[in-house]
Design a protein around this nucleic acid. Structure first.
Lengths: 182, 182
DNA sequence: TTAATAATGAACACTATGTTCAGTATCTTA
DNA sequence: TAAGATACTGAACATAGTGTTCATTATTAA
């Protein structure tokens, strides 16, 4: 990729994140971004179609990173399976903690909805592999939504309640959600 | 209130709800509303500051209605307390079911976030009175968020999964959330 | 060195917003 | 039912942001 493009993209994202920290997403205009990134108007539009693209790309980036697997902790089978998933989720929490500043500003406005949607989509994939306990008579997708939504909401709660370690948060989450089958 | 004002407000809300059913909230412009309600531009602005006002008022209306207490089922004390809350929640579900069409279109776009926020705010008040079971070592507000978020998400799930009665949904919810203290 | 590619910025058309105001219609109440 | 208050109308206007175009300049990769 051309250095110039890389430089431009970087400037845009830095401007965007900076703006996110000082005003809500809906109040940010393309003009703001252009001014702050100090690039030409046409340059912006040659990189992105609309403002929403930025948010999407940013979310994709955050989650691609947070949900990346570290080979050392690959799931094998049987007993270790539950701990494998627990580790995977804890790993995600570590990433979330490190991006707390970004995430808080994203969550504090309309853009939070987009963020949560991405988050849940990724979580569905993870919990789809994990398949937590489903009580009798409960529709599978409803049970799935419980795990997914509650994990996402747990993170949202955590972002506003500092002072808990990822492991502690994981412990809290597990009080409401059994990760192994009955 | 002047009949003319009532008529105008009604026309605006009917237009707004109609538009909500055929396009997403962010795509609706003030112009659309004016055209559909068939009122003058300046009339709209003498009633509302911005488009967001409409959504807020609409949500307030939906929830004021859904959370209104019916005197017959007032909570008394002790044993009946749990059932009282259960009835209250089921009552809310009935209202939600009746407004399903509105609610689905609100939920299907950015406006869903606003809706969910109002919903949760009202639910916090209800669950604040109910005080569901809090497991040892779990922060009170975290436990509260579980009840609140999960009830709201249950409704969101239900809106897209027809075929369950309010009582059945309440039953599902209770599989994940104890309404009485341990 | 050079051909390809990217960035610039000014100009432009367009869409939606929100305000103003003089004129008209409709209400209330005396 | 007449009079004064209040609400609606619609056209005109200023403003702001969007997204496009294009000739020019700068940077890059080979």
């Amino acid at each position: 990729m051309d250095r110039r493009q890389v430089k431009t993209r970087k400037a845009v994202f830095e401007a965007f994140v900076g703006l996110l920290e000082e005003k809500g997403y809906p109040d940010i205009t393309v003009q703001d971004i252009i001014d702050r990134a100090d690039i030409g108007r046409s340059t912006f539009y040659s990189h992105f179609e609309v403002k929403e693209d930025l948010l999407n790309v940013l979310c994709e980036e955050i989650f691609a990173h947070a949900f990346s697997k570290h080979p050392a902790k690959e799931v094998t089978h049987d007993f270790s399976e539950r701990d494998g998933f627990k580790d995977e989720l804890t790993h995600i929490l570590y990433h979330m903690r490190d991006s707390r500043d970004y995430i808080r500003s994203i969550l504090s406005s309309e853009s939070g909805d987009v963020f949560m949607r991405y988050f849940k989509d990724h979580l569905r994939e993870v919990f789809g592999r994990c398949r937590p306990a489903v009580p009798d008579g409960v529709p599978g997708d409803y049970a799935m939504e419980h795990s997914v939504c509650w994990f996402a909401e747990t993170v949202r709660w955590w972002m506003d309640n500092e002072g808990y370690s990822p492991e502690e948060v994981m412990g809290l989450f597990c009080r409401y959600c059994q990760l192994q089958r009955p």
